[in-house]
């Protein structure tokens, strides 16, 4: 997998941002301090310029990564875990439990996400805890559906029957026998969950539903709009944060592609990940 060009780029981007989030804040100025003139363009003193309040945009971008990525990682871990346990249990038990859980999952999946998240978040005190709770509550159904489908197909295999015959408990069969066989699906789900958690978080904070005193990628963009960055042409107040979100997201998407193609080789473009399905001569003649 590491041999794949896209996987290498994706991994480099993701790990790069993770290190920035972990170590970066140690090396930059206080992101909330009023250090310079308001809305100063990028210069030697302020690499990414200053905000409408004279804060250092570079420091805000680096420090913002920490909070956003931390909340996103926790949310992604929780949603995938909850989704996996519920999905696997439903598929394994079948019957009424399965029917009810599938109904719950489908109900959440057909409802548009943002209005639901916004209306719940608006009733809770703003902050990272609210953010985490709201995004976890609304994020798990997708993973439950994917895992349920996978487990339903594993369930009829012989090794599960063998575990049942030897008297293992349901809980043990789900966790020990089934979950390890889901590694690729769970990996792909985790990547999707991270993308969702970053995007939804930034969107909510942009609306003003985050802790506005905290420095996160979402609040950076909130303040950029509030300080009329667009009407004064101060592109430097929103470009670095957006580029950060996109680069991190793109890295994740690349990793997701590679994982998906390993799970389903039909999707692979010829030659990109080794020998894929060979097209028929007729197709080749047409191409």
């Amino acid at each position: 997998m590491i041999a794949d060009r896209r996987a290498r780029l994706g991994l480099a981007l993701v790990l790069g941002f993770v290190s920035v989030a972990l170590l970066g804040p140690l090396f930059v100025a206080d992101p909330s301090a009023y250090l310079g003139p308001p809305l100063a363009p990028p210069s030697g003193d302020f690499w990414f310029g200053t905000t409408g309040q004279g804060q250092d945009v570079f420091a805000q971008t680096v420090v913002g990564a920490r909070s956003t990525l931390l909340v996103a990682t926790i949310v992604a871990g929780l949603t995938v875990f909850i989704g996996a346990v519920l999905g696997a249990t439903a598929a394994y038990l079948g019957g009424v439990v399965d029917a009810l859980l599938s109904l719950a999952v489908n109900v959440f999946l057909v409802m548009p996400g943002l209005p639901l998240i916004v209306v719940i978040a608006a009733f809770l005190p703003p902050g990272p805890v609210t953010m985490g709770v709201v995004l976890t509550l609304t994020g798990w159904p997708w993973h439950a559906r994917v895992v349920r489908a996978q487990v339903a197909s594993l369930r009829s295999r012989d090794f599960v029957a063998a575990a049942q015959v030897s008297g293992e408990s349901t809980w043990r069969i789900v966790v020990v026998e089934l979950l390890p066989n889901l590694a690729a699906v769970l990996g792909s789900s985790f990547i999707g969950a991270l993308l969702y958690a970053v995007g939804a978080q930034v969107g909510l904070e942009f609306l003003g539903l985050g802790d506005l005193n905290a420095v996160t990628w979402g609040t950076n963009l909130y303040w950029a709009t509030n300080d009329s960055a667009l009407l004064t042409g101060s592109w430097w107040t929103f470009v670095p944060t957006g580029a950060g979100i996109a680069a991190f997201g793109f890295g994740l998407t690349l990793l997701g592609f590679v994982l998906d193609e390993r799970a389903n080789p039909r999707l692979a473009a010829r030659g990109a990940t080794g020998p894929g399905p060979q097209p028929t001569p007729v197709e080749r003649a047409d191409g």
Partner: peptide
């Protein structure tokens, strides 16, 4: 890949960038 890169930007950020560059 190109469209995935575009899709990685938040909707509203693309809107901000377009509004600044093409509009302002």
């Amino acid at each position: 890949p190109l469209l995935s890169l575009l899709g990685a930007f938040p909707y509203f950020w693309l809107a901000m960038a377009a509004s600044w560059f093409l509009g302002f």
